[in-house]
Computed example of a mutant assay.
Amino acid sequence: MAYPIHERAQEAFSEFVDDPFLQKHGVIRRQSHMRNRRGLDIYTQSWAPAGSSRRPCGLVCMIHGFMVHSGGPWELTAIAMVKQGFAVYALDLQGHGRSEGLRGYIPDIQWLLDDCIEFFNCSRAEAPGLPAFLYGESLGGALALLVSLRQPGVWKGVILSGPMCGIARSFMPPWPMELLLPLASIVVPTWKAVPTQSLVKASYKEPTFRKLIRTDPYLCRGLPRVASARELLKACDEVQRRSYEVCVPLLILHGDTDHVCDVKATEVVYERVQSHDKTLKILPGMWHQLIGEPPENVDCVFKLVFSWLRDRATGACNGNAKG
């Protein structure tokens, strides 16, 4: 199997992303912390092929979505990429997972970009000369695109999964909350007052996977905070406004039944980007979180991802991948 989600435990994530599971897949995990410019402790981790003879053929720097974190199911994606010969780096965004900050609170989207760039600069310095790629899901997709715009010429390519180029109408704040959001985010920025559907229920198609997600102790729960909603909309606006500047090789994967992030906005962004090497795959019947699909869909998605990565790692991956 291309993706280790098929071996997932049936009770809790903590029961399978453990040392025996990593050893079984030939993966070494390193956990660390970074003190950011605002004095907050940001949790970081990396995964690499076990054994000194298995030099990575490239780096993948991953950015997770809103309310989730770099562990749990996200770690399965990292393991799958390591098995393809890549070293993988990820951080928990401020207010998410094991990083400091009020849970689910994004005071300024630019601060998240600052943290990503600081950590990924250090990550790339550990393996100079290797091709480096960005991979982002949902909010992480928007952040990955904005990181690439801040660092032109640095990244070999960017992969976006269900990217937040726009928020689906069903997840937008209702009228008149949408109009009042700028004022409310100044007066009561941390207030959990933006009514939405259940993000987990709307994102993951497989009921068993939804059940597993809900056992995750690091998942942010409850309604989005007012300032966070404002910053998500600002990120969408910046992605759309600056999409004409994007020149990096780009792969976008988006389920056509995504009820969280707007597929039409993704299509508009794709048409605007100036990359000579760009691919958009609209996946019939798939939901927002592509790892929450049935196993055959997950394998199909990640075969596309792995093939795209390896083709752009300029031959460095030859002979490194494990099935």
Rank of each mutant, 00 (worst) to 15 (best):
E137P: 01
A168Y: 07
C220K: 01
N320T: 14
R169T: 14
N121M: 10
C165I: 06
V260E: 07
G285Y: 05
P107D: 04
E271Y: 00
S148L: 01
E7A: 15
P224D: 07
W287A: 03
V273F: 05
D311S: 09
E271G: 09
I213Q: 03
E206Q: 12
S53E: 13
E293K: 11
P295D: 13
E100H: 08
K281Y: 14
R103M: 02
E296H: 14
E267I: 02
W111I: 12
S52R: 14
E296R: 08
I291P: 11
P49I: 03
K303G: 10
L304C: 00
P173V: 10
L76S: 04
A48P: 00
T190I: 03
Q274V: 06
P294N: 07
D299I: 04
G65D: 11
E11L: 14
D41P: 00
T190M: 13
K205V: 07
L251R: 11
L183M: 08
D256C: 02
G51A: 10
P182D: 11
L290H: 07
L145Q: 15
H288V: 00
R8F: 08
C300H: 13
R210A: 11
S148V: 02
K83I: 03
L112D: 13
H259I: 13
T208F: 03
P4M: 06
L180F: 13
L22I: 12
K264P: 02
W47F: 15
W308E: 12
A184V: 10
A227L: 13
G65I: 11
N36L: 15
G292D: 03
E11N: 13
E238V: 15
D18G: 06
V60A: 05
V263P: 01
A127S: 15
L149F: 06
I42L: 08
H6N: 13
L76P: 08
A316M: 04
G292A: 09
W191M: 12
R38A: 12
P163E: 05
G71P: 05
